[in-house]
Computed example of a mutant assay.
Amino acid sequence: MTENAPIVASACTDAGDLPNTVAVNTRGLSVSQSREVWSEAVDSAYCDMDVDWPRPLSAFAAAIVARPMGEVSVSVVRADPHTVHRTPAMIAADPTDDLLVCLITKGSASIVQGRRVAVLDSGAFGFVDAADPFVVTGNTPFEQVVLRMPRSQMSARLGRSLEYSAAQRISADSGMGRIASRLLVDLASHDDRLDSRAGATVASATLDVLAAAIDQTGAVSLTDRAHHEDLRRVQRTMLAHLDDPDVTLTDIARDVGISVRYLHKLFATAGTTPRNWLYTKRFERAQAMLSDTDLPVGEIAGSLGFRDVAHFSRAFRRHCGSSPTGYRAQHR
C-alpha cells in the first residue's frame, strides 16, 4: 500500500463525515482492548468471523478503513500477524452471499477455502466466498486491500463457476492480473468522494476488470468439474433425507446412481467423510432452530434424524461445546 493510503490515525473512531465508513486503529489500546476492538471491526466490515493471534499476550497493532462504493466496499488493512476464520456455525447464524477479494501489498498472507490454498504477496490477490467456510492468515505484518462485493455481481460476469475460482492466487506480474491489482490499489489509496452514480459506475467497471482477471486463471479439468457436480448431487440427496434415521449410504448412492465406493471418494477429495459432513449439517440446522424457533428440543432432534433426545443432546454437546438448552439460552 502506498504511504498516503487513507488509514485513520486515531485509536478507535467512526469516520462521521463519511457515511457507512468503518475506521478503526488499535494503536494505544491495551492488549485485551485491541483484540476486542479488532474482532468487532472485522465483523462490521466483512462478516461474522473469529480471530486468532499467534501471540495472544503481546501487543497487537492493526488499522482499517472501509468505505462503500456503489454495491461494493473497499477497505485498507494494516495489521500484525493474525488469522480470521469463518465456520459453518457462523454461516448459519450470519448468512451472506458476499465475496471478499484480498490483495496483499506488503508482507504475506494465505487464504484457504475447501481444498484450495493460495499464498498472496507482492500485489497478488484472490477471493473467498463468505457463504462457505474459509481461513485467512496474515503470516507476517501485512498490508492489504479488501474488496467486498455481492456474489451475484461477480457470478454474472464470469465465464465459469465461482466455485472453481475461490482461493486461487492471481499474480500481479502481468496481464489482467496486473491491471486489476493496480486498479484496486489505486481505488483504495485515494478517497475521491464519488457521488452515488459515479461510485456505481466505477464499481461496475472494477468488477468487469476483476472478472476478466479471474477468468484468465487456470482452467478446471472436466474430470474435476464432474466430481464436483457429483458431490453436490450426493449432498443435496443427503440433505433431503436429513430427518430419516433409516436412510443408509447405500440408499443415497443408489438414488444418485453411483457406487458407495465412489461416494466415499468424493467426500475424501473434499477433505471429509460422509458421516462428518452430515453431522456438521445436522448441527448447523440444529443451532439455527434452537436460536430462531421455540420448538422443543425433542422435536428438533426428531426433525434431524435422531431417534431419542438423549443421543441428540450428547452428540450436540460434543460437536458444539454446550447442551442444546444451554446453546439456546446463549443465542436468544
Rank of each mutant, 00 (worst) to 15 (best):
S259A: 15
A253W: 02
H227L: 05
D230W: 00
D251R: 03
G271H: 11
L231M: 12
V256G: 02
T250H: 10
D230T: 06
Y279P: 00
Y279W: 06
H228W: 12
A253I: 01
S259R: 07
A270R: 12
V234W: 00
L263S: 05
A268K: 14
H227Q: 14
L263V: 08
T237L: 03
I258Q: 02
I258H: 02
T248F: 06
D244R: 07
P274L: 09
A270H: 11
A240V: 02
V260Q: 07
T248K: 07
T272Q: 09
Y279R: 14
L231E: 06
P245E: 13
T280S: 11
V247K: 04
A253N: 03
L278S: 08
V260D: 06
D255W: 02
T237W: 00
I252F: 00
D251K: 04
R282H: 05
T269P: 01
D230L: 11
W277S: 08
L242H: 07
V234H: 04
R232I: 12
V247Y: 02
A240C: 01
R282Q: 15
D251P: 05
E229H: 12
P274Y: 10
H264A: 04
F267N: 08
H241N: 15
A226D: 10
R233S: 13
G271P: 13
V234C: 08
T272V: 08
I252A: 03
V247R: 10
D243N: 13
E229M: 10
Q235W: 01
D244T: 12
D243M: 06
L263P: 01
A240I: 01
R282K: 15
A226I: 03
L278V: 01
R254P: 04
T269Y: 06
I258M: 12
G257W: 04
